[in-house]
C-alpha cells in the first residue's frame, strides 16, 4: 500500500476541515477501504479516520425512529437495535464475520455503496434518512448506482434515521467466501405501505422492487408475489450465479422475508 498522511480528528469540525485537503479520503472502519488500499486501487494523500469522533458512535431510539450514528459498528447495531428494530439488528448480525462487525461502520458501508452490501437494502426498505454534516438525504435520493452515492466530496455521514417499521426482515443468500450477499432482500411493512430493498442482484446496485411493494401493500403474505416475475435483464452475472439465478432469488427471498417478518 502506498503511504499517506494519517489524521484522526476527535470532532466533526476537525474532520470536515481535514477532508478539505487535496486527495483526502474518509476512513470508517476500514473493512473495505484497507483491503482496497493494500491492492493499490486507492491511493489518497491523506486518510481521515472518523472513528475517533465519539459523538458519531451511538444507537438510540427517539420516538418512532431508530437513530444510528455514522461510526456505529455493525456489532453495535446487532446488539443495541435488537429490541427496538429486530429486522435491522438481524441484518447487521450477518454482515461479514464477528471481527469485521466490530470495526465496520454503517457510514462506511453506505458511503461505499457496494452493490452486494447489506445496509443499502435496509436503508431503502426502511425509508431511512441519511444525515450528513451539511444536509439530510432521503434513502430514495441517496443511492446512485454501483459504488456511487449522492454524497459530495468531503461530506460525512453523521447519522442514519430509520423510521421503525411495523414488521421487517432481511433475507441474505450468502456468498460464503466473501460473506457478502449473492442476493439480499429487506422487506419492511410501514403503516403507509410496504417497501422492498434488493441488494446483490442488479448491475445498477441496490433497488426497490416496486411491483412487490404494491402487491404486498394490498396483501401482506408471501403468496402475494406469486404472480410476479423479476426480469434477468441488468442483473449481475458472475461465476457465483447467472442473472437468471439472481432474478429468481429476488422473488424467493422476498417471500421468505415476508414469512419471517
Amino acid at each position: 500500500m502506498y503511504d499517506f498522511q494519517f489524521a484522526r480528528p476527535t470532532s466533526l469540525d476537525e474532520a470536515v476541515k481535514a477532508l478539505s485537503a487535496e486527495d483526502a479520503q474518509a476512513l470508517g472502519g476500514g473493512q473495505t477501504l484497507i483491503p482496497t488500499l493494500k491492492q493499490r486501487l486507492a491511493a489518497p494523500e491523506v486518510l481521515v479516520s472518523l472513528t475517533g469522533i465519539r459523538e458519531l458512535r451511538f444507537v438510540r431510539r427517539d420516538g418512532d425512529t431508530l437513530r444510528v450514528g455514522g461510526t456505529a459498528t455493525h456489532g453495535m447495531v446487532a446488539r443495541e437495535a435488537a429490541a427496538e428494530f429486530p429486522g435491522l439488528a438481524g441484518m447487521a448480525v450477518r454482515i461479514g464475520d464477528p471481527a469485521v462487525r466490530n470495526r465496520g461502520t454503517i457510514g462506511g458501508s453506505l458511503a461505499n455503496n457496494d452493490p452486494s452490501a447489506c445496509y443499502p437494502a435496509a436503508v431503502l426498505a426502511a425509508n431511512a434518512t441519511v444525515v450528513t454534516n451539511s444536509r439530510e438525504i432521503a434513502a430514495d435520493e441517496f443511492f446512485d448506482g454501483m459504488f456511487t452515492t449522492a454524497l459530495d466530496e468531503g461530506e460525512i455521514i453523521t447519522e442514519v434515521r430509520f423510521p421503525i417499521p411495523e414488521r421487517a426482515n432481511y433475507q441474505k443468500f450468502e456468498q460464503p467466501a466473501s460473506h457478502f450477499a449473492l442476493v439480499g432482500v429487506m422487506v419492511a411493512k410501514h403503516a403507509d405501505g410496504v417497501r422492498v430493498g434488493v441488494t446483490g442482484a442488479s448491475e445498477d446496485g441496490v433497488f426497490r422492487w416496486t411491483e412487490a411493494e404494491d402487491a404486498l401493500s394490498g396483501n401482506y403474505a408471501p403468496e402475494a408475489v406469486d404472480g410476479l416475475t423479476v426480469s434477468a435483464d441488468g442483473m449481475i452475472g458472475d461465476l457465483h450465479g447467472t442473472p437468471e439465478y439472481r432474478a429468481h432469488l429476488v422473488k424467493v427471498l422476498t417471500k421468505r422475508a415476508v414469512a419471517a417478518s
Binding site: 476500514g30 486518510l47 471481527a99
Partner: peptide
C-alpha cells in the same frame, strides 16, 4: 481480512489486526 490468524482484542473486542492501522 479473510483468515483471522491476526485476530487480537482492541478494547475488549475481537478485530483483525491486519485490517486496522496502528494509528487507529
Amino acid at each position: 481480512s479473510q483468515c483471522g490468524a491476526c485476530v487480537v482484542h482492541v478494547d475488549g473486542q475481537a478485530v483483525k489486526a491486519c485490517t486496522m492501522f496502528a494509528a487507529e
